[in-house]
Amino acid sequence: MALDAARYVAGLPKAELHMHIEGSIEPELMFELAARNGVPLRWKTVEEVRQAYRFHNLQSFLDLYYDGCRVLVTERDFHDVTRAYLRRAHADRVRHAEMFIGPQGHTRRGVALETVLEGVLAAMDAAEREDGITSGLLLGAQRHLPEEDALAMLEAAEPWRDRILGYGLGGAEVGNPPSKFARFFAACRERGFRVTAHAGEEGPASYVRESVELLQVDRIDHGNSCLDDPALVAELAARGTPLTVCPLSNLRLRVVEDMTRHPLATMLRAGLNATVNSDDPSYFGGYVNDNYLACHEALGLDIDDLTLLARNSIRASFLPAERQAALLADIDAWRAAAEAP
C-alpha cells in the first residue's frame, strides 16, 4: 500500500536541531512587536515584508535578519517569539527542538543578556508544560566578531549554565574560518557544553574539516560542501557526525539553484548522518515539515528515507539515551500504524 507522504510526515515524530529563534519572527508578529515597542520598520505592510524575502546570498539575508531583530526589546518579546515557534513546531509533530539564539546581536544594541535568556527559557518551560514539546537552547557566537567577544559571552552566560545546552558558531562564513574560534570552542568543551558550528553552507569543505578536527564539534550545521572532499565524506560517515541540513534555506539563499539539485539524497546515499531542519522558517518559506515534503517531491525521497531522516534527527539530538530510545520507538510505532490496513 502506497502511503500518502504529506499525511505520513504530518504525524511523523521528529526533532528539529537547526533553527534560529530570531529567524522565526513571522511578519505579523514583527509588526505587533514593532508597535508594542515603538520600533519603526522600513516596510508598511506584512506583504511588503514577505516581498523582501528574496535573497541573493547569505549576507543579503543577514542584513534583513538583523534589521528584524530590532523589534525584540523586552523579556516578553523573546518569550512570545520563542513560544510562537514552539507552538508551530508542535503542530509539525516536533517532539524536541534544539534552538539557537544569538545574544551578541541583542546585547550590542543595549538589550541585557538576562532579558534575552529569561524570556526564551520561560517560553521553553511553558511549551513543555502546555504542549509536551521539550527543547534545548544553544547560544550562537557571531563569526564576523572577534573571538574575544565570544569568550565574553560565554562568561556572561555562566549564571544560566544549567539551562544552556551548548554553543554554536553562525553568521557569514566567507572570510571567517572556524579556526578563528579555536580557543572559544575549547573553553566551551572544557565547561562541559555541547558544541556545533555552521560550516559548508557558503564556505568550502575545509571549513567543515576545521570544525570537526580543530573545534571538535558534536554536529555540523549545514555541511553541504563536505561533498567536495571524498575523504572528508568518508570520515564524517565513519564518525557518524550529524549534519543539520536546511533544504529550503539553501534554496532561498542560492546555495542551490533548484531543489532537484539539493545534495541531501547524495548525503544519505553516502551514509552521512543527515537531518532536515528549517533554519529560519519565517524567512525561508517553510517549517520543518515543509522541508521534508520539499525533499520528498524534488528528490524522490520515499517513506524509508523520510523515516530515516526522522530517526537521524533523534539520534543526532543532545537528548539522553533513554529519551532518544523512547522517541525512536514512537517513530517505529507511527510507521507501523501508517502501514497497517
Rank of each mutant, 00 (worst) to 15 (best):
D218M: 07
R219H: 08
R219L: 05
I220A: 01
H222D: 07
G223V: 06
G223N: 09
G223P: 03
S225D: 14
L227T: 00
D228R: 15
D228V: 12
D229P: 00
P230F: 03
P230S: 06
P230C: 05
A231E: 15
L232H: 04
L232M: 01
L232Q: 03
V233T: 03
V233E: 07
A234W: 02
E235H: 13
E235F: 10
E235C: 11
L236I: 04
L236S: 08
A237R: 00
A238M: 10
R239S: 02
G240D: 02
G240H: 01
T241Y: 04
L243T: 04
V245K: 11
C246Q: 10
C246N: 14
P247W: 08
L248H: 03
L248G: 01
S249Q: 03
N250K: 04
N250M: 00
N250T: 03
N250F: 03
N250A: 04
L251E: 06
L251K: 04
L251H: 09
R252W: 14
R252I: 12
L253T: 09
R254A: 13
V255C: 11
V255H: 10
V255W: 08
E257W: 12
E257P: 00
E257L: 15
D258G: 06
D258N: 12
M259P: 05
M259Q: 07
R261C: 13
R261I: 12
P263H: 01
A265Y: 11
A265K: 13
A265I: 11
T266Q: 14
M267Q: 09
R269S: 13
A270V: 10
A270W: 03
G271K: 05
L272F: 00
L272Q: 03
A274E: 02
V276L: 09
N277M: 04
N277S: 03
N277Q: 06
S278M: 04
S278H: 05
D280Q: 02
P281C: 09
S282M: 15
S282E: 15
S282D: 15
Y283K: 01
Y283H: 11
Y283C: 11
F284I: 05
F284S: 02
F284Y: 06
G285D: 07
G285F: 07
G286D: 08
Y287H: 12
Y287D: 09
V288Q: 07
N289G: 12
N289Y: 12
N289F: 13
D290R: 11
D290K: 08
Y292R: 01
L293W: 06
L293S: 06
L293F: 07
A294Q: 09
A294F: 11
A294V: 10
A294S: 12
A294N: 09
A294K: 08
C295P: 00
C295V: 09
C295E: 10
C295I: 02
H296M: 09
H296C: 11
H296V: 11
E297R: 15
E297T: 12
A298M: 05
L299I: 04
L299W: 10
L299Q: 11
L299F: 05
G300H: 06
G300Y: 08
G300A: 02
G300W: 10
L301A: 04
I303A: 12
I303N: 11
D304T: 13
D305S: 14
L306R: 03
T307Q: 07
T307V: 10
T307A: 06
